[in-house]
Write a protein that binds this DNA or RNA. Structure first.
Length: 609
RNA sequence: GGGGACGUAGUUCAGUUGGUUAGAACGCUGCCCUGUCACGGCAGAGGCCGCGGGUUCGAGUCCCGUCGUCCCCGCCA
């Protein structure tokens, strides 16, 4: 028989009682975490989000109560009235915060039973993710998940308070809005009132926040859900939370200060001090030195070898002096075994324009002088792994002619990015064995922020045979590069910037275009006719004509910030109800088909088969 | 869209070269135990080996397909 709560009130949380509470009466409520039945003596660990407390039921002093307590099973919900007793020296449990006391029960109310759960929150080995996601409510009872979700709360509150203190206003923008196909795929919501028409869930509140600038709310922010119908990754969910902000009359540096300030507050809330201002690096430098637009600064930069090799050496190696050669140094990894050298091949496969020399020892034998120069330039210690990546000859031939495609850059990005992938792959693969990521103690606590600036304005889209906005089409070009907009689009730099932390892109922002004439030129450069532009963004182009102040902003991924601070490997560890790789919610089983009646009402027909 | 890993008891896993009745730990059920705290001891229940085909005298094991979870590439203005 279950008991009612009645007018019983809980006096303490399950992690609260201390020796100083000895002798006091206490009422605890929570789950049965563990039961230790010693016959006439029964111990129950009662658990809530704050911890566990041992409860004692003694047959001798209260046989009926003891008998009742024997019914308790894991995950039952109970209320216990009892007296806090100091434990004797020998019976103290130093492993838990409440271990110096126990609650001697006087009354037990069984508030609810539990079926045998598929797994126990107190277990040390995790079930697989499918199980965890299906029974998410049980998974979330686990201490690690509680910690992550509460950490998320603390960060969000700290950020909200900080931005408010910096003079920003949190303003809501619609979730049911307009599809602007470009970039990520939209999630669509059919309109019942207008059959055949659809709302789109926002990929970001981009245009709304710009319109808020036009409306005079000169500092806007929002911690807001965004939606993108693209394939998932460990760090990508179809719905995710962004810290979105926009400000009027701001130069990039001002936006960076705002971000550095709220991140400082957020990390502080999690007990971490971070250093500001963050270092800055242009996109071009990031590619050349790290082979990535989101460099992980915890690993040494790559070294451009340039003229380390003599001409004869290059010829002997089958390399052209015109192509880049870079060296990767992974500290403390040592030489790779033959098997390991074979294993790294998949790490750069697919980026086939690079030639990799993973056996530096061999290179050293054949080209001792060049190898010595390489070691010196990399600043390599004897137990560092060195791998060379060079442009393969095929890369030289692949540079395109005058067919409108961009020339390959003089530094051929393909070589650098292949080297960059290899750099990360090697470090990750051997991080545990060789602790390549270890710099200053705990690797997860080594927060290396970075601003990456001066992104290219356009990227050539091979598939669509056209220029595409690298950031988004409302990003302002550098004023000095405006003249190249028509003549040399590939060389136009954008006033765009990314926040990078330990190789993860935390956020992305830009100064926006506030002048209608420039916006038009950008659309034209993107190959969009006036008509197309008006059809897609007409409302916005019109808004631009009514006195738009210069403005800019940024959006940072809250989930990713929490993930990194929590030291988690996946976003799913910091999102209470995440989706699987196929964008399914295993707990509620969504998405699902809907009834014919619903479809009919919406004027939608599903093609089957 | 492509590549890879995995799928055996409620859970985590083992399962040899294809060969008798598919095992262990935890959890679960019952009994014993008054100082345990990942309690201990004894006994027990629990299996469509993801699903569907195939090869074979014989399949958890080999092959094909399919479904699911995870990781990566593409994709993510």
């Amino acid at each position: 028989m279950l008991d009612f709560l009645g007018d019983l009130e809980r006096t303490h949380l399950c992690g609260a009682l201390r020796v100083s509470d000895s002798g006091r009466k206490a009422v605890l409520m929570g789950w049965v975490n563990r039961r230790r039945d010693l016959g006439n003596l029964l111990f129950i660990d009662i658990r809530d989000r704050t911890g566990v407390t041992q409860i004692v039921f003694d047959e001798e002093s209260n046989p009926r109560l003891h008998e009742k307590a024997r019914q308790l099973r894991n995950e039952y919900v109970i209320a216990v009235i009892g007296t806090v007793m100091k434990r004797d020296g020998k019976t103290i449990n130093k492993n838990i915060a409440t271990g110096e006391v126990e609650l001697v029960a006087q009354e037990l109310r069984i508030l609810n039973e539990s079926k045998q759960p598929p797994f126990l929150p107190s277990e040390t080995v995790l079930p697989n993710e499918e199980m965890r996601l299906k029974y998410r409510y049980i998974d979330l009872r686990r201490e690690a998940m509680q910690r992550n979700i509460l950490l998320r709360h603390s960060l969000a509150i700290a950020i909200r308070n900080n931005l408010s203190a910096q003079g920003f206003f949190e303003i809501e923008t619609p979730f049911m809005t307009r599809s602007t196909p470009e970039g990520a795929r939209d999630y669509l919501v059919p309109s019942r009132v207008q059959p055949g028409s659809f709302y789109a869930l926002p990929q970001s509140p981009q245009l709304f926040k710009q319109i808020l600038m036009i409306s005079g709310f000169d500092k806007y922010f929002q911690i807001v859900r965004c939606f993108r119908d693209e394939d998932l990754r460990a760090d990508r969910q179809p719905e995710f939370t962004q810290i979105d902000l926009e400000m009027s009359y701001a130069r990039p540096e001002r936006v960076w200060e705002v971000v550095e300030e709220f991140l400082t507050a957020a990390f502080k809330a999690a007990g971490h001090d971070i250093k500001t201002p963050f270092p800055r690096m242009t996109y071009d430098e990031a590619i050349r030195r790290y082979g990535s637009d989101k460099p992980d600064l915890r690993l040494p930069a790559m070294t451009d070898l340039g003229d380390a090799f003599a001409k004869e050496d290059l010829a002997a190696l089958g390399l052209s002096p015109k192509l880049p050669i870079v060296a990767l140094r992974i500290p403390k990894v040592g030489e790779l075994s033959r098997k390991e050298r074979d294993d790294i091949k998949p790490l750069f496969n697919g980026k086939g324009r690079a030639k990799v020399f993973e056996d530096f020892k061999r290179l050293e034998k054949s080209f001792p002088q060049a190898a010595a120069r390489v070691r010196e330039r990399c600043g390599a210690a004897s137990d560092d792994l060195i791998v060379l990546v060079a442009g393969a000859d095929a890369a030289a031939g692949s540079k395109s002619g005058g067919d409108g495609k961009p020339e390959a850059t003089p530094h051929d990005h393909a070589v650098y990015t292949a080297a960059g992938l290899l750099r990360l792959g090697l470090a990750q693969k051997y991080a545990e064995r060789h602790r390549a990521f270890e710099r200053t103690g705990d690797p997860a606590r080594d927060f290396r922020f970075l601003w990456v600036t001066d992104f290219p304005m356009f990227e050539y889209d091979e598939e669509g045979q056209r220029w595409a906005a690298a950031h988004h089409p409302f990003t302002s070009p550098h004023e000095q590069d405006l003249e190249k907009l028509e003549s040399d689009p590939g060389a136009v730099r954008a006033l765009a910037y990314d926040t990078v932390l330990n190789g993860t892109e935390l956020g992305s922002g830009s100064i926006r275009i506030h002048r209608q004439d420039i916006q038009r030129r950008i659309f034209r450069a993107l190959g969009m006719t006036e008509e197309e532009a008006r059809q897609r963004f007409g409302f916005f182009l019109e808004a631009l004509e009514y006195g738009t102040p210069p403005h800019g902003g940024i959006a940072l991924g809250l989930d990713r910030i929490v993930m990194i601070i929590a030291g988690a490997e996946s976003l799913r560890e910091v999102i209470p109800f995440p989706k699987t790789a196929r964008a399914v919610d295993l707990m509620v089983d969504a998405p699902t088909p809907v009834s014919e009646a619903q479809l009919k009402e919406l004027g939608i027909m599903i093609r089957r088969g």
